[in-house]
Simulated scan of single mutants.
Amino acid sequence: MKLCPTCGENKDETEFNKNSRRKDGLQVECKTCQRTRNSAAQKKLRKTRDSINDPQVYETASTLLEQFTKDMGVIDVVGVAHDLREFYPEASDLVISDAVMKAFEKLVTEMKEETP
């Protein structure tokens, strides 16, 4: 019998995956708790991946970047990222940086096209 620290239950050793690096040769968590934790992590990762392509975050980034550039005469991607963080507090850093970079690339392309 072995205690799973996550669920607090004493379980048979067959309820634990193997881990040759541990003294007892078994994982710390039972298979059920490990499955639950992995499933939650996968859902979080899927949500992050889906939100990276969120057009609303991108459009807001694009609008903010254009406004910052027009008002201040400089391209301020850090300021835009900061404002996006306030508008979308649930968005991950990856989503914010991806939206800012896409908006930045769009703005630079438009500026190049306008230059004779």
Rank of each mutant, 00 (worst) to 15 (best):
M1V: 12
M1Q: 14
K2W: 03
L3C: 08
T6S: 15
G8L: 05
E9H: 11
E9S: 11
N10G: 02
N10L: 07
K11S: 14
E13H: 10
E13N: 07
E15T: 06
E15M: 11
E15L: 09
F16R: 03
F16E: 03
N17L: 06
K18R: 13
K18P: 06
S20H: 05
R21L: 06
R22G: 02
R22F: 11
K23M: 09
K23Y: 07
D24G: 02
G25R: 07
G25F: 10
L26W: 11
Q27R: 15
Q27V: 14
V28M: 14
V28I: 07
E29Q: 14
K31E: 05
T32C: 01
C33D: 02
Q34D: 11
R35L: 12
R35S: 15
R37L: 13
N38G: 05
S39Y: 12
A40Q: 13
A40F: 05
Q42W: 11
Q42P: 02
K44L: 08
K44A: 14
L45V: 10
L45F: 11
T48S: 13
R49C: 07
R49S: 02
R49K: 12
D50E: 12
D50N: 12
S51L: 13
S51P: 03
S51E: 03
I52L: 08
I52A: 01
I52Y: 04
N53M: 10
D54P: 06
P55H: 12
P55T: 09
Q56F: 14
V57W: 02
Y58M: 06
Y58K: 15
Y58T: 04
E59W: 07
T60V: 11
T60C: 10
S62A: 13
S62R: 07
T63G: 07
L65S: 01
F68C: 02
D71I: 01
D71T: 14
M72L: 02
G73Q: 03
I75D: 00
I75W: 02
D76S: 05
V78L: 04
G79W: 01
V80F: 03
A81Y: 04
H82I: 09
H82K: 15
D83E: 06
R85L: 01
E86A: 14
F87Y: 13
F87T: 11
F87M: 01
Y88P: 03
Y88R: 06
P89D: 09
P89F: 15
E90Y: 11
S92D: 03
D93E: 13
I96Y: 01
I96S: 00
S97E: 04
D98I: 09
D98F: 04
A99P: 04
V100W: 01
A103V: 02
A103Q: 00
A103F: 04
E105N: 05
E105D: 12
K106I: 00
K106F: 01
L107A: 00
L107I: 09
L107S: 00
L107Q: 00
V108R: 02
E110H: 10
E110L: 12
M111K: 10
K112C: 10
E113V: 08
E114K: 15
E114C: 03
E114T: 07
T115K: 15
T115L: 12
T115Y: 09
T115Q: 12
P116C: 05
